[in-house]
């Protein structure tokens, strides 16, 4: 067990283990801090800036991103000061300038008291450039199918050379972690497509479930599972059984999927 440190969040004295972020500590205390780019399973990157808090005490009085700032002995955190609220509203307005129709963003705007955005970009999509998809694909799946291109206003998520990805395994984790639904996964018949706004990034033929015959997962994805979860244990994935059939048969999943299984739970 890590050593506990004492800190104050919104006047409440709390204890949190060393190395924990301020965001996590606040969450444990039931204190709401809006976030977009933060995801429990991913390394924080601090891209959306929504989780800003005002800190003082143990460190210089300043505004920090709570998803990266670690707790410290004697740290004083304020999450709802006038300055924080004002800055947070501005950040939401800026995000809305790019993604004015994103339902998730509009919900957050409502929570933070933003009615309209003063910014217009002309070019609109739902992507808030949080990078969750890139991070999950790179750090958790290890497929390296997605990347950032360009800078500033032109920054976007795409594949290598902006073509159908050869490295994507079709797991759908990117779509699952996307906070705004800008990346979508669509299964139609025996085909799976993964889209970003305006671009199909990958296309797959789905393998059929050995039990019910329903197409449910791409070969590359099943191969990856075989390689990572089975072969390492000296096993081999022989049957492709879809999640529905597994549920009906009440056969528990033998593999502990670290992450990404939620999009397309696989079990045999």
């Amino acid at each position: 067990m890590a050593t506990l440190v004492n800190l104050t969040i919104n006047g409440r004295e709390i204890q949190a283990p060393e190395g924990m972020t301020v965001l996590e500590a606040a969450k444990n205390e039931g204190i709401f801090i809006p976030t977009l780019c933060h995801h429990e399973a991913l390394e924080p990157e601090g891209t959306c800036r929504l989780c800003i808090v005002e800190v003082s005490g143990a460190i210089r009085h300043s505004i920090r991103v709570s998803c990266i700032q670690e707790v410290k002995e004697g740290l004083i955190v304020e999450t709802e000061t006038k300055r924080i609220r004002r800055d947070r509203r501005l950040i939401i307005e800026l995000l809305l300038g790019r993604s004015p129709y994103s339902k998730e963003l509009l919900d957050l705007a409502g929570k933070c008291g933003v009615a309209t955005s003063r910014f217009r970009t002309g070019e609109e999509d739902d992507c808030v450039r949080c990078g969750r998809c890139v991070r999950v694909c790179r750090d958790k799946i290890g497929a390296y199918a997605l990347c950032w291109v360009n800078r500033g206003y032109d920054r976007k998520v795409t594949t290598d050379f902006e073509r159908l990805s050869e490295y994507c395994i079709g797991c759908g984790s990117c779509a699952q972690v996307c906070p705004t639904g800008a990346i979508r996964i669509e299964d139609r018949g025996d085909e799976r497509k993964i889209y970003t706004w305006g671009q199909v990034i990958a296309r797959f033929k789905l393998e059929k479930c050995t039990e019910c015959g329903r197409p449910f997962a791409p070969k590359k994805y099943l191969d990856r599972i075989n390689e990572r979860a089975y072969k390492t244990k000296g096993l081999e994935l022989v049957d492709y059984i879809c999640p529905e059939c597994v549920k009906n048969k009440e056969r528990p999943s033998p593999v502990n999927v670290p992450f990404g299984g939620g999009a397309m739970p696989f079990v045999v």
């Binding site: 199918a145 997605l146 990347c147 950032w148 291109v149 360009n150 800078r151 290598d160 050379f161 490295y167």
Partner: peptide, 25 residues
């Protein structure tokens, strides 16, 4: 050239997406 970049990716074991990202940056 794309072909050269893909070859570099293969030889250096650096994913092509990362190289593409850097080239774009």
């Amino acid at each position: 050239p794309e072909e050269e970049l893909r070859y570099i990716s293969k030889r250096t074991q650096i994913p092509i997406t990362q190289i593409y990202s850097i080239v774009n940056f």
